[in-house]
Amino acid sequence: MAMIAADNRGLRLATRYAVLVLIAVIFVFPLVFMVMSSFKPDQQLLQDASNLRAFLPVGDISLQNYTAAFQRAPVATFVFNSVFVTGVTVILSLLLCSAAGFAFVFVNWKGRGVLLSLLLATLIVPFETIAIPLLLLASKLPWIGLDGLTWGWLNSYRVQIVPFIADGLTVFLFVQYFKDLPGELIEAARVEGASWFQIYRRIVMPLSGPILATAAILKFLVMYNQYLWPLMVTQEEGYRPVMVGLQYFFQLNVAWGEVMAYLSMITVPVLAFYLYLQKAFIASIASTGVKG
């Protein structure tokens, strides 16, 4: 009887691993294909595409596509722009949205329920529907800088950052997470005379590692993959991010090797960021009940 149970357990384990390996293969092979193709000349890349050689570093392997990609487009500028815009937006978003979430959950004030509902309602509005009004607004906003007062935010980093700092989803994530924190901690701190800011900074934030990681990853992905908005607001090459830069590689005759090299270069930071935060991400997803 015990042997049958052990056999069943072994079978279940083998099946589970087989399924997991299959899923891993499905997800990993496109990345392997991308990286391997980035080292191959176009003709070989196209020939290999129909067989297993596509996933192997075989044939005429070189860094030529990477060199050519740097010649075709200012790759370093695009990567810097994306990393800078994404990094600043993520940091500001975590600060602002966590503070908003804190205020919605712990501070008692009139209208917070209605405001939270309104904020959540913005989740159903796709960005595309507000892109043009936002563009018109951004083209007329004032700014005080080294040149004094100027009008219009186009062709700048701020136009790519400011509209995305606060969003309903991130606030919602923080609200959900904060609701599960023990209220006694907050009450005790209030009794001890701590200010709201002290509670936010010294009690709530140190307990919010998983949700900070989750919000950071989600915001990072959204920002790093931005295409439509930067396309609309950056006419100057010096401000363009990586996704707009990808278009530089789609000429009449597409140089697929260079496309793969460029994609490999811009994908690595995202993968690294995700791998760095994935444990916290998974923990937070499990605790907030947010799927997908």
Partner: peptide, 15 residues
């Protein structure tokens, strides 16, 4: 880039 040009012009015109 050619693939983004028309959209950029339309956005530029709107702005």
């Amino acid at each position: 880039p050619q693939g983004a040009y028309n959209d950029s012009v339309v956005a530029g015109a709107l702005a």
